[in-house]
Design a protein around this nucleic acid. Structure first.
Lengths: 110, 110
DNA sequence: CTGATCTACAACCATTTGGTTGTAGGATAT
DNA sequence: ATATCCTACAACCAAATGGTTGTAGATCAG
């Protein structure tokens, strides 16, 4: 049963978001704790604006959410987004296993 | 135990490769059967050269291998590459669950 | 041998990406 | 009230991406 049909564009954004070392690192951070955008920015050797853009990419991909708290913007990991990406790879894995099973079957026939 | 340490560049290439609808479709195809480059090209509304480039991207990401057979180049899915991507997402998932467990622990303390 | 097929690769083009600096506006602290 | 901090966003730039066409080398069929 396919609960949640993912559009191509959504998957493009998801995997594109993972395709950058800084963004993967941000994902690791926000999975564990809370960070403001500037808190994240202080961790990397690049401008605040650059980190802000990375967070925006993650946000568009639904991998992260932002919530305003005072003058800060708190970045939190979004479990759903991560699961969607995982689900797709699991699907490929399943196709692969089916094929392996089919091959074994054919070999067993002779 | 981490058996296989993945470099950042390798992961960049892996996820970048998945970040395109045509390439994900190619992955689905070659996971099931064998295709020549031109066989794949005939499936999409774009030039042969464009498909050739997509295959090259998948190949550089170790998601696919090519093998020369006569005048054709046979494209096959590479299970290892797929598993590497899955492993990373699983890792994030694990971090997430650890954090959820930790939160539950804290709540249980009071 | 000739022609058709499959592939590789270069050159080109428009758009996106990942970075920068600069400007401006809200929230906070003193 | 003023200075500082955090954020948003625009403008710009170089490099990468996703596409094209064209050329050329192998391989196969007749």
């Amino acid at each position: 049963m396919v609960v949640d049909q993912l559009s191509d564009a959504e998957l493009d954004r998801l995997f594109q978001a993972f395709a950058d070392t800084t963004r993967r690192d941000i994902m690791r951070r926000v999975a564990v704790g809370e960070y403001s955008v500037s808190g994240l920015a202080s961790l990397y050797a690049m401008s605040f604006a650059a980190v802000q853009k990375h967070v925006a990419v993650l946000e568009r991909a639904s991998l992260v959410t932002k919530e305003k708290r005072g003058r800060e913007q708190i970045v939190r990991g979004n479990h759903e987004g991560l699961q969607k990406a995982r689900r797709l790879l699991d699907e490929y894995e399943a196709i692969w296993r089916q094929r392996a099973a089919r091959i074994a079957e054919i070999l067993a026939e002779e």
